[in-house]
Computed example of a mutant assay.
Amino acid sequence: MTPWLRIFLIGFGLWVATVVVTTVTANSTLIPTLVLLGSFLVPVTFVVWAYARARSADITVELLFNCFVVGGVLGVLGASILETWLLKPSLVIYIGVGLIEEGVKLAALLFVTRQMLTRTTRDGLVLGATVGFGFASFESAGYAFNALFANDGLSLRQLVETEVLRGILAPVGHGLWTAIIGGVLFGAGKRLTGKVITTYLGVSLLHALWDSMHAIAIGLTLVFTGKPWQFSQLRIGRVPRVTEGQVHLYTAIDWGGLLLISVLGLLWLRAIARGPTVRVVEER
């Protein structure tokens, strides 16, 4: 059995056991264990999988740890500060979130790999993905913690549902986007060339589209099947709910959009991985 599969199966078993024991005993002290296991399982599994495929002597376990933990924490802290200072509710807020979060992950990747003298495009893919998955893990832990609090008290069901959904989507989110820019960045010798900047803007756009897909799905659903009362709510600045008759169209557009964005990202990543391998050696 491969290491990544062993890690996933053992981790998944522990997560299921924690869900069961927490449900049966109502022991709230187990909630941090549940949050951490559910938030980190899939990202850690994919980092191990990527590391095994890279087979690079320049990527050490210590460097992976720094990218995942230090890079991930610096990313979420930087994004939180910048989004609080710079973003206000508006139609373009998703673009701002994409630019900020991809920017802080890029900066974190540059920081934690600053001592690397030898690097390749593949190294950038792996280390970029590691920073992205670290960011996703800490972000998911926050979302899971927030989901715990319902109007009528603590909701273990909401927490578990949030972890399952974010775990399923994790492979085609932050890790994928930062892997793309990491590969291009390392291929450019960690210089902010025009190609790197264009890639940054491209992954930021994918990020923005991903985050805004629910709003886009509501908008398209209203274009095709909107009711007068829904347009009235839009005119006063409220987002209308979809009706039972619209929910299937809304869901199809929402998930179809996420699937399309994921496919575009994966094709982009594949093109970089299959492109010419650039090896850069820096002298001190």
Rank of each mutant, 00 (worst) to 15 (best):
V61Q: 14
R241S: 13
M1W: 12
S232P: 04
G219Y: 09
R114Y: 06
N66D: 08
L99T: 02
T118Q: 07
G124H: 06
L222F: 07
R6T: 12
T162G: 10
V35R: 03
G132Y: 00
L205P: 09
G219E: 08
F40R: 10
L34V: 09
T120G: 04
L30A: 12
G124N: 04
S155M: 06
G189N: 05
P228W: 04
F133G: 05
T178Y: 01
Y94W: 15
I95A: 13
G128Y: 00
V160L: 11
S212Q: 14
V69K: 01
I272W: 03
L269F: 07
Y143T: 02
F8E: 05
I197S: 01
F224I: 06
L30F: 13
V21M: 03
R53M: 04
G167T: 09
V239F: 06
F65C: 09
V76W: 04
G124P: 03
A108K: 08
L169F: 10
D254R: 15
T162H: 11
T162L: 12
L41D: 09
V19N: 07
V48I: 15
P43L: 08
D211Y: 06
H214S: 11
I253R: 02
V263D: 02
R274F: 04
G75L: 03
D123F: 08
E244G: 02
S137I: 01
A215C: 06
L185T: 13
V126F: 05
T130V: 14
L206V: 03
Q246T: 07
L9F: 14
V278G: 00
G226V: 11
T193N: 06
G256Y: 11
V47W: 00
F186P: 06
T221S: 10
G38D: 13
I180E: 10
W229Y: 12
L258R: 12
V44L: 14
S140G: 10
G78E: 00
K88Q: 14
G226P: 01
L269P: 02
I7N: 06
V69M: 05
L37C: 05
I10A: 03
D211L: 13
I95F: 12
L82C: 08
K190D: 10
